[in-house]
Design a protein around this nucleic acid. Structure first.
Length: 213
DNA sequence: TATACGATCACCT
DNA sequence: GGTGATCGTATAC
Protein backbone atom coordinates (compact mmCIF):
# COMPACT_ATOMS: atom_id res chain seq x y z
CA UNK A 1 0.00 0.00 0.00
CA UNK A 2 1.15 3.53 -0.60
CA UNK A 3 3.05 5.00 2.29
CA UNK A 4 4.56 7.87 0.38
CA UNK A 5 3.62 11.30 -0.86
CA UNK A 6 0.27 11.29 -2.59
CA UNK A 7 -1.49 8.46 -0.80
CA UNK A 8 -5.25 8.68 -0.69
CA UNK A 9 -7.23 8.79 2.56
CA UNK A 10 -10.40 6.70 2.59
CA UNK A 11 -13.21 8.70 0.89
CA UNK A 12 -16.17 10.23 2.65
CA UNK A 13 -18.46 7.56 1.18
CA UNK A 14 -16.61 5.02 3.32
CA UNK A 15 -18.00 6.69 6.44
CA UNK A 16 -21.44 7.47 5.05
CA UNK A 17 -22.91 4.17 6.21
CA UNK A 18 -24.44 2.68 9.33
CA UNK A 19 -22.07 2.99 12.30
CA UNK A 20 -21.73 -0.75 12.82
CA UNK A 21 -20.80 -1.27 9.17
CA UNK A 22 -18.14 1.42 9.40
CA UNK A 23 -16.84 0.02 12.68
CA UNK A 24 -16.42 -3.39 11.05
CA UNK A 25 -14.86 -1.91 7.90
CA UNK A 26 -12.34 0.18 9.85
CA UNK A 27 -10.63 -2.91 11.24
CA UNK A 28 -7.27 -3.31 9.53
CA UNK A 29 -7.26 0.23 8.09
CA UNK A 30 -4.32 2.48 8.76
CA UNK A 31 -4.65 5.44 11.12
CA UNK A 32 -2.00 8.01 10.19
CA UNK A 33 -0.82 10.90 12.35
CA UNK A 34 1.67 13.48 11.13
CA UNK A 35 3.35 15.04 14.17
CA UNK A 36 6.15 17.58 13.95
CA UNK A 37 6.93 16.39 10.45
CA UNK A 38 7.12 12.80 11.60
CA UNK A 39 4.74 10.18 10.35
CA UNK A 40 3.16 7.82 12.88
CA UNK A 41 0.67 5.11 12.07
CA UNK A 42 -1.01 1.99 13.27
CA UNK A 43 -3.50 -0.57 12.02
CA UNK A 44 -6.91 -0.27 13.64
CA UNK A 45 -7.68 -3.44 15.57
CA UNK A 46 -10.59 -2.55 17.85
CA UNK A 47 -13.65 -0.31 17.30
CA UNK A 48 -17.06 0.40 18.76
CA UNK A 49 -20.14 1.75 16.97
CA UNK A 50 -22.34 4.46 18.49
CA UNK A 51 -25.71 5.60 17.18
CA UNK A 52 -28.30 8.24 17.79
CA UNK A 53 -31.61 8.56 19.59
CA UNK A 54 -32.09 4.80 20.00
CA UNK A 55 -28.63 4.21 21.49
CA UNK A 56 -28.58 5.13 25.16
CA UNK A 57 -24.81 4.65 25.30
CA UNK A 58 -24.15 7.28 22.66
CA UNK A 59 -23.25 10.90 23.28
CA UNK A 60 -25.78 11.62 20.55
CA UNK A 61 -28.60 10.03 22.54
CA UNK A 62 -29.30 13.66 23.36
CA UNK A 63 -28.09 16.47 21.17
CA UNK A 64 -25.79 18.82 23.10
CA UNK A 65 -23.08 21.26 22.03
CA UNK A 66 -20.49 18.52 22.47
CA UNK A 67 -22.35 15.81 20.58
CA UNK A 68 -23.53 18.11 17.77
CA UNK A 69 -20.55 17.06 15.68
CA UNK A 70 -21.99 13.52 15.54
CA UNK A 71 -24.99 14.95 13.68
CA UNK A 72 -22.82 16.50 11.01
CA UNK A 73 -21.11 15.15 7.89
CA UNK A 74 -19.27 11.81 8.05
CA UNK A 75 -15.51 11.39 7.93
CA UNK A 76 -14.88 14.02 10.60
CA UNK A 77 -12.90 13.31 13.79
CA UNK A 78 -14.75 13.60 17.08
CA UNK A 79 -12.21 13.91 19.91
CA UNK A 80 -13.42 14.31 23.47
CA UNK A 81 -11.83 14.49 26.91
CA UNK A 82 -12.86 12.02 29.58
CA UNK A 83 -12.12 11.11 33.21
CA UNK A 84 -10.20 14.31 33.64
CA UNK A 85 -7.12 12.97 31.87
CA UNK A 86 -7.80 10.94 28.75
CA UNK A 87 -8.89 11.65 25.21
CA UNK A 88 -10.91 9.38 22.93
CA UNK A 89 -10.88 9.42 19.13
CA UNK A 90 -14.04 8.80 17.11
CA UNK A 91 -14.97 9.03 13.45
CA UNK A 92 -18.34 10.54 12.54
CA UNK A 93 -20.52 8.19 10.47
CA UNK A 94 -23.91 8.14 8.74
CA UNK A 95 -25.38 10.84 6.50
CA UNK A 96 -25.12 14.51 7.34
CA UNK A 97 -28.02 15.22 9.69
CA UNK A 98 -28.17 11.69 11.11
CA UNK A 99 -25.98 11.04 14.18
CA UNK A 100 -23.39 8.30 14.46
CA UNK A 101 -19.74 7.67 15.29
CA UNK A 102 -17.17 4.92 15.70
CA UNK A 103 -14.82 4.91 18.68
CA UNK A 104 -11.34 3.71 17.78
CA UNK A 105 -10.31 1.63 20.78
CA UNK A 106 -6.90 0.29 19.82
CA UNK A 107 -4.30 0.12 17.09
CA UNK A 108 -1.25 -1.99 16.36
CA UNK A 109 1.72 0.39 15.95
CA UNK A 110 3.16 0.33 12.44
CA UNK A 111 5.25 3.46 11.80
CA UNK A 112 7.09 5.86 14.07
CA UNK A 113 7.27 3.52 17.04
CA UNK A 114 10.15 5.53 18.51
CA UNK A 115 7.85 8.54 18.66
CA UNK A 116 5.06 6.52 20.23
CA UNK A 117 7.51 5.42 22.90
CA UNK A 118 8.44 9.04 23.54
CA UNK A 119 4.79 9.90 23.98
CA UNK A 120 4.24 6.98 26.38
CA UNK A 121 7.44 6.89 28.47
CA UNK A 122 8.12 3.74 30.42
CA UNK A 123 5.45 1.73 28.62
CA UNK A 124 6.22 -1.63 27.01
CA UNK A 125 5.66 -1.72 23.23
CA UNK A 126 2.77 -4.09 23.54
CA UNK A 127 0.80 -1.53 25.58
CA UNK A 128 1.65 1.58 23.55
CA UNK A 129 -1.76 1.96 21.91
CA UNK A 130 -3.98 -0.88 23.14
CA UNK A 131 -6.75 1.32 24.54
CA UNK A 132 -8.75 4.37 23.48
CA UNK A 133 -6.94 6.75 25.85
CA UNK A 134 -3.60 5.10 25.22
CA UNK A 135 -3.69 5.46 21.46
CA UNK A 136 -4.59 9.12 21.80
CA UNK A 137 -1.61 9.66 24.08
CA UNK A 138 0.69 7.67 21.79
CA UNK A 139 -0.40 9.64 18.70
CA UNK A 140 -0.77 12.97 20.51
CA UNK A 141 -4.45 13.21 19.61
CA UNK A 142 -5.99 15.96 21.72
CA UNK A 143 -8.84 18.48 21.66
CA UNK A 144 -7.44 20.70 18.86
CA UNK A 145 -7.91 17.79 16.45
CA UNK A 146 -11.63 17.68 17.19
CA UNK A 147 -13.46 18.37 13.92
CA UNK A 148 -10.54 17.63 11.60
CA UNK A 149 -11.50 16.10 8.25
CA UNK A 150 -10.10 12.57 8.12
CA UNK A 151 -10.61 12.33 4.37
CA UNK A 152 -7.93 14.95 3.73
CA UNK A 153 -4.24 14.22 3.72
CA UNK A 154 -3.26 16.35 6.73
CA UNK A 155 -2.33 15.87 10.39
CA UNK A 156 -4.68 12.97 10.95
CA UNK A 157 -6.31 10.67 8.41
CA UNK A 158 -7.08 7.05 7.59
CA UNK A 159 -5.89 5.09 4.58
CA UNK A 160 -6.38 1.57 3.28
CA UNK A 161 -4.57 -1.02 5.37
CA UNK A 162 -4.75 -4.78 5.69
CA UNK A 163 -7.56 -7.16 4.77
CA UNK A 164 -9.22 -8.61 7.85
CA UNK A 165 -10.36 -12.16 7.38
CA UNK A 166 -13.74 -13.14 8.80
CA UNK A 167 -11.97 -15.84 10.81
CA UNK A 168 -10.04 -13.12 12.64
CA UNK A 169 -13.07 -11.05 13.58
CA UNK A 170 -14.60 -11.03 17.07
CA UNK A 171 -17.83 -9.19 17.88
CA UNK A 172 -18.93 -8.39 21.44
CA UNK A 173 -21.03 -5.91 23.40
CA UNK A 174 -19.41 -2.54 24.01
CA UNK A 175 -17.15 -1.82 26.96
CA UNK A 176 -18.29 0.25 29.91
CA UNK A 177 -21.66 1.37 28.57
CA UNK A 178 -24.81 1.98 30.61
CA UNK A 179 -28.42 1.83 29.59
CA UNK A 180 -31.22 -0.67 29.11
CA UNK A 181 -30.70 -4.32 28.23
CA UNK A 182 -30.83 -3.69 24.50
CA UNK A 183 -28.21 -0.96 24.73
CA UNK A 184 -25.86 -2.96 26.94
CA UNK A 185 -26.00 -6.15 24.89
CA UNK A 186 -25.95 -4.65 21.39
CA UNK A 187 -23.02 -6.41 19.60
CA UNK A 188 -21.29 -3.27 18.42
CA UNK A 189 -17.68 -3.86 19.47
CA UNK A 190 -15.41 -5.21 16.74
CA UNK A 191 -12.00 -6.74 17.41
CA UNK A 192 -9.42 -7.90 14.92
CA UNK A 193 -7.53 -10.89 16.31
CA UNK A 194 -5.04 -12.14 13.73
CA UNK A 195 -4.54 -15.84 14.33
CA UNK A 196 -0.86 -15.39 13.58
CA UNK A 197 -0.13 -13.24 16.59
CA UNK A 198 -2.27 -13.16 19.73
CA UNK A 199 -3.99 -9.90 20.64
CA UNK A 200 -4.90 -9.14 24.20
CA UNK A 201 -7.75 -11.23 25.52
CA UNK A 202 -11.14 -9.70 26.02
CA UNK A 203 -10.44 -7.06 28.67
CA UNK A 204 -13.60 -7.60 30.70
CA UNK A 205 -14.44 -11.16 29.92
CA UNK A 206 -17.72 -10.63 28.11
CA UNK A 207 -18.74 -13.41 25.79
CA UNK A 208 -17.78 -12.97 22.21
CA UNK A 209 -19.46 -14.20 19.09
CA UNK A 210 -19.15 -14.10 15.35
CA UNK A 211 -22.90 -13.96 14.98
CA UNK A 212 -22.94 -10.71 13.08
CA UNK A 213 -20.39 -11.67 10.51
C1' DT B 1 -23.81 28.70 40.12
C1' DA B 2 -23.30 23.96 41.85
C1' DT B 3 -22.69 19.19 41.62
C1' DA B 4 -22.14 14.43 39.99
C1' DC B 5 -19.93 11.51 37.02
C1' DG B 6 -17.90 9.44 32.70
C1' DA B 7 -17.24 5.37 25.59
C1' DT B 8 -10.26 5.26 31.08
C1' DC B 9 -5.78 4.09 32.80
C1' DA B 10 -2.25 2.76 35.98
C1' DC B 11 -0.95 1.12 40.07
C1' DC B 12 -2.10 -1.34 44.16
C1' DT B 13 -3.11 -5.87 46.61
C1' DG C 1 -10.36 -6.91 41.62
C1' DG C 2 -10.23 -2.55 43.71
C1' DT C 3 -9.53 2.34 43.47
C1' DG C 4 -7.60 7.15 42.94
C1' DA C 5 -6.42 10.63 39.60
C1' DT C 6 -8.56 14.75 37.62
C1' DC C 7 -11.76 17.99 34.83
C1' DG C 8 -15.05 18.96 30.99
C1' DT C 9 -19.78 18.33 30.32
C1' DA C 10 -24.48 17.77 31.31
C1' DT C 11 -28.02 18.57 34.21
C1' DA C 12 -30.27 20.20 38.25
C1' DC C 13 -31.12 24.01 41.16
Amino acid sequence: MPTHFGEHPLPRAFYERASAAVARALLGQRLVRVLNGRRLSGLICETEAYGGATDQASHAYRRTPRSAIMFGPPGIAYVYFIYGMHHCLNVVTECDGYPGAVLIRSITPAEGIECLRENRPGVADRYLADGPGKLCQALAVTAPLNGIDLTRNSELFITAGAQVDVQELVVTPRIGVRGDEETRTRPWRFVWQPTSHPVRPDPRGETSSNALV
